[in-house]
Simulated assay, not measured.
Amino acid sequence: MLRIVNRVLTGLVGLVLLVVGGSVLAVGLGFDPPSWWIHDSSKDVLLSDAERTRWEDESWWWPTVIAALALVLLLTLWWLTAVLRRRRLTEVRVNTGDGEGALLRGRALEGVLEGEAAELDGVHRAHAHLTGRPEAPRTRVRLLLEPHVDPGTALHHLTSEALAHARNSAGLDSLPAEVRLTGAKHKAERVS
């Protein structure tokens, strides 16, 4: 969801900047703007002295400007951190029992989860994705099931076998999982 919002916001901001910048450039180069446009000629300024100082004497003006700019800054920083934040867990802390611990690559654990889940009866394809913190990982598993498989049975086998093995082998107290089950769609074939 965040990826879609990110792309839409980036596209809208880019489109607005392109339209406004291109039109200001076109007016500056001498093209005649439409009657509704804010600039009349290439000698026109973006904000006149009267427009810039219109609200300066009002007591609410500067706090409103500062609050609006602070809000824009906070929203921009939130968006930037959401874009730059890592989505995938790169390593998991494994409890070795000796008080030291070890680090396990997240991709390795994902690969084992995927492989073991794909071997379950009726699973056409599996995909695992680790998120969370190294001390408390979470996983998202997607299973593509064959048409004949009962989803409840497949979910039970996944939790009791693949997820239990991953949790026990990494020495984790718990491994919360979000599981998405979808059915495989096969093309109809003519039988003669």
Rank of each mutant, 00 (worst) to 15 (best):
V45T: 15
W79Y: 13
G122V: 02
D44G: 08
R88P: 01
A82F: 03
H39C: 09
S59A: 15
E119A: 12
E119H: 08
L74F: 15
T90R: 14
I38V: 12
L47S: 04
T139Q: 04
W60G: 03
L103F: 07
R107V: 06
W62T: 12
A50M: 09
E119M: 03
L47K: 08
L77N: 08
V65L: 13
A128D: 02
E110M: 07
G106W: 02
A102N: 08
L47D: 02
R140P: 01
E114K: 11
A67E: 13
S48N: 14
W79P: 04
H129A: 07
L74P: 05
E135G: 07
T76E: 14
A67M: 15
S59L: 06
W78S: 13
A118G: 00
E116Q: 11
R88M: 05
L46P: 00
S42R: 12
L80E: 10
D44I: 05
L104N: 08
R86G: 09
I38A: 12
G132R: 03
I38S: 13
R52M: 11
E58N: 05
G122I: 04
L103P: 00
A68L: 15
H39T: 13
R107F: 06
A117H: 01
A108S: 15
S48P: 07
A128I: 02
W61S: 03
L46W: 11
R133E: 12
L73A: 15
D44A: 14
R133W: 13
T81N: 13
D98K: 12
W62M: 15
V83W: 08
R85N: 10
R125Y: 05
W61R: 05
R85A: 10
T53P: 01
R54A: 08
R142G: 03
V72G: 15
D44P: 04
V141P: 00
H124I: 00
H127S: 14
G101Q: 02
K43F: 09
W55I: 02
G106I: 02
L89Q: 00
E110Y: 05
T96D: 13
S59D: 14
